[in-house]
């Protein structure tokens, strides 16, 4: 009896040791991975606040005393290119395209989720199938189309905005995503509203949209983030420097032909572009993760 108790006691100790060892390894691995993830951000920040002379020191300076942080780099970076203008453009473009996208997708998702019409399922399958086709297939013709529409030649800010937003005012993925949410709203709600004499349009805006708000917020964020990161299309369709978006400005302003780059200013600008995104992410993390993990589950 005493023997067996002791054996068990030994077992427990061994087990506890095993558990502690496992936990230590686990947290070490996770911490290492976290460092791997953070390093680029860390290096971006450190470089952005260094004096120019300190950037070109080998081996590099790994930590800058907070008293010596050069916030002037941000001012200098902003002088390099009209970043304020680029950000303004980006915000406008993302607002227009987001509002447009929400309206078109809400209507379309409603039709697919609630209305019964000829060819609904075939059309829906066709839309899903197009999601597989790489965007480069569309770009060529879309470029020709916006030229035809007169949004490129003798470009004004208005036509530049049209060229940057109209082709992206709807999204099959968001229609799909929103339809899934709409479908989860119980039929009874719709029938009850019908009995009460509610019109479809009223039902959509007064009941479905508020219920689906979390999804709509997710779509808004993802769409805005997409615009913030857009590089290729804006570069293709903007004819004047001042119509471009942040990503374009960022890449071109520091591409020094001589190969000597003011890295601290470049990183300061990169940080300026990155910070709003990080801020949005940290405040609205829940919605972003939701959207991403949903897309995975339904995929």
């Amino acid at each position: 009896m005493a023997m067996s108790t002791q054996v068990v006691y030994g077992d427990e100790k061994q087990n506890r040791r095993k558990v502690i060892l496992r936990q230590t390894i686990l947290y070490t691995l996770l911490a290492l991975f976290a460092i791997f993830v953070i390093i680029p951000f860390y290096w971006m920040i450190m470089t952005a606040i260094k004096e120019e002379a300190d950037v070109f020191v080998s081996p590099p300076i790994l930590w800058v005393n907070p008293l010596n942080w050069q916030f002037s780099n941000f001012a200098l970076a902003l002088e390099r290119a009209p970043f304020a203008r680029f950000m303004y453009n980006t915000v406008i473009v993302s607002m227009i395209s987001t509002v447009g996208t929400i309206i078109t997708t809400v209507f379309a998702a409603f039709a697919f989720a609630r209305l019964n019409f000829v060819g609904r399922d075939i059309l829906f399958m066709a839309l899903i199938a197009t999601m597989m086709i790489p965007g480069e297939m569309f770009v060529i013709t879309n470029f020709l189309t916006v030229v035809e529409l007169g949004w490129i030649r003798e470009q004004t800010f208005t036509t530049a905005l049209l060229a940057m937003t109209i082709p992206f005012m709807t999204s099959i993925f968001y229609i799909f995503f929103l339809r899934q949410t709409f479908k989860q709203i119980p039929n009874e709600l719709y029938y009850a509203a019908k009995v009460d004499g509610t019109k479809d349009l009223q039902y959509l805006w007064k009941i479905m949209v508020p219920i689906a708000m979390p999804t709509i917020i997710t779509i808004t964020i993802l769409n805005a983030m997409g615009t913030w990161n857009a590089y290729i299309w804006p570069r293709l369709v903007t004819q004047r420097e001042e119509f471009r978006l942040v990503s374009n400005g960022l890449r071109n302003a520091f591409d020094d032909a001589l190969g000597v780059t003011a890295y601290n200013e470049q990183m300061a600008a990169a940080l300026l572009v990155t910070l709003p995104l990080l801020f949005v992410f940290l405040t609205l993390k829940k919605y972003i993760i939701r959207g991403v993990s949903r897309s995975g589950i339904k995929g």
Binding site: M1, S4, T5, V8, Y9, D11, E12, N15
Partner: peptide, 12 residues
């Protein structure tokens, strides 16, 4: 039986 299994993990 006579074994005190209180702290024995389920797998054992």
């Amino acid at each position: 039986g006579d074994d005190d299994v209180t702290t024995v993990p389920p797998e054992e």
